[in-house]
Design a protein around this nucleic acid. Structure first.
Length: 221
DNA sequence: AGTGCGATTGACT
DNA sequence: GTCAATCGCACTA
């Protein structure tokens, strides 16, 4: 394994969120996740040359969308398949899928086992492993590293290998962490990029955050 | 086995 | 603002 320079991390120590802390209602979960952290600790074999301390990639969640049971826009709407089975796991599991032949998307499953609901993570504010995220994304602009769900997954090195893992599992390499600072006011809007059940106000974001995707109109000015 | 399309992105006018 | 890329999946037959 290559030697690497010790990196100084200004990151506060993160605490793993337990499943009991996650709201059982998926729309509530989507709102609650704003301000929390998402952390990926890839295996050392997957560390890039620009990896941060311990190879860690982490960010503050600033934008989410909820996909609910009975919601035609939810991938679980037509029942379980091989692709969407992770949505039916108890809340707090990762659902990863590939879209447009281009992008991976990272979701957190919601509700009780068998429910078929989840929360799409649409944007994060980069916190740790920023140099690695810049390498993963091919840009240095902090604001562009993870603004949008496909970019978020690319920055965090998310792919099918993480589909179905328990984010609340002991020692999980992808996990949810506590908020590192006070969370700002939370805005609500329609979900982005869907055609079915498009009228539901199930997108949540931290108001004023430059790391949020979407238009000025959706983001309330 | 073939078809249509999607919870997007990046390049371009 | 517009638009093509690209492929896994669900659906039809």
């Amino acid at each position: 394994m290559p030697r690497r320079a010790a990196a100084i991390s200004a990151m506060p120590r993160l605490r793993r969120l337990t499943r009991a802390e996650l709201p059982a209602d998926t729309a509530a979960l989507a709102r609650w996740l704003i301000g929390k952290t998402i952390v990926h600790d890839p295996s050392s074999a997957d560390w890039g040359d620009a990896a941060g301390a311990g190879g860690r990639l982490a960010g503050r969640i600033v934008e989410t969308e909820a996909y609910l049971p009975g919601d035609a826009a939810c991938h679980a709407f037509r029942g379980p398949t091989r692709r969407n089975r992770a949505l039916f796991l108890e809340r707090g599991h990762a659902y990863v899928y590939f879209i447009y032949g281009v992008s991976f998307m990272l979701n957190v499953s919601g509700g009780a086992a068998g429910t078929g609901a989840g929360v799409l993570l649409r944007a994060i504010e980069p916190l740790d492993g920023i140099a690695a995220m810049q390498a993963n994304r091919g840009t240095a602009r902090l604001r562009d590293l993870a603004r949008g769900p496909g970019r978020l997954a690319r920055a965090l090195q998310i792919d099918f290998a993480l589909d179905g893992i328990d984010l609340c599992g002991r020692g999980a390499r992808l996990w949810l962490g506590n908020a590192v600072r006070e969370t700002g006011a939370i805005g609500t809007s329609l979900r982005i990029g869907i055609s079915k059940d498009a009228h539901r106000p199930l997108r949540f974001f931290e108001r004023g955050s430059p790391f949020v995707s979407g238009t000025r109109r959706l983001n309330g000015g």
